[in-house]
Design a protein around this nucleic acid. Sequence first.
DNA 1: GTTAATCTACTCGGATAGCCAGTGTCCGAGTAAGGGCGG
DNA 2: CCGCCCTTACTCGGACACTGGCTATCCGAGTAGATTAAC
Lengths: 158, 158
Amino acid sequence: MNEGVEWAMHSCVNLSWLPGQAVTAKHLAAFYDLPTAYLNKQLQALSRAGILSSTSGPKGGFQLARDARKISLLDIVVAIDGADDAFRCTEILKAGPAANPKTDYVKTCHISRAMRAAELTYRRELAGQSIADIAEQVLTEFPAAPQNTRTHLANLKS
Amino acid sequence: MNEGVEWAMHSCVNLSWLPGQAVTAKHLAAFYDLPTAYLNKQLQALSRAGILSSTSGPKGGFQLARDARKISLLDIVVAIDGADDAFRCTEILKAGPAANPKTDYVKTCHISRAMRAAELTYRRELAGQSIADIAEQVLTEFPAAPQNTRTHLANLKS
DNA sequence: GTTAATCTACTCGGATAGCCAGTGTCCGAGTAAGGGCGG
DNA sequence: CCGCCCTTACTCGGACACTGGCTATCCGAGTAGATTAAC
């Protein structure tokens, strides 16, 4: 899986603590000492997917495009890594001895079915977790986290 | 995900219908018109993982190393694709503002937790499906499948 | 006829190239703030 | 003093190299059977 998925998720959690405020890729990268340009690339992908909204120019940056409760971890994975399943059925049965050219083996092959069922549970699990859920878990463990990120961001501005 | 996973699973199902018989990589590849040498590479991986047993020389080949009910789809995925999770936590929190160097963020970071939980359901689903289960599903739909594969293999020998 | 040694052909096994997606970086188009100028 | 315009600096956005792993292939080590020759 793409490295940027992790960065994107952490960045989204940070952004959830700065509602209505545009944060530049440079500042978001400074949080975890990430390469600015490459993180920017990932944030662009989130922007194209409608998860973030971007603003150009001075005072510009990224912010969450919708409520953090409406942004699931699956949304981020799909935005960064693409919507394709990890297991890709190439329908090798079509070249088999008793093959029917009209059959859609992606749906009928039992191996393809089993793999797709497993990935479905995976995606369902990720779809059930939102950025707000993660943020709330962190908040429970570290109540000062939001304020810490805000002050840290303010210090970066200097 | 590695292409060979699909080939390996289909080959294992075929082998489950030829118990106690060594089938060469060449013949297994002929089933679905696959590149022989590359399929051989995947079968080697299954052999190293203890899923298949290999025999060299004339009358040699591959066969299931244990009962098909004891071979899960997860076993095959791990053998071909490796045991690493798709999502790899790089502990970027260690470079964060309020980081504790002694903390194992792979286990404490809530994002890492959520991703690992999702993958766990995925692996659990795959671990619950065996080659024998798949073979039985195919058998229910196509009762003649085992005999067809045997005759097809016999024709290849000529 | 029986047996044992040799030979042969066939198999797996690992070592060797080629290619594509992910990784990393850079510079240009667009924009909004800030300053200067005129009224 | 107020408002408009221009400059400027800063941001995102996409275009350009580089790398590691997957894909694909080949030839060598090892083995079991077949052949042959001797007893």
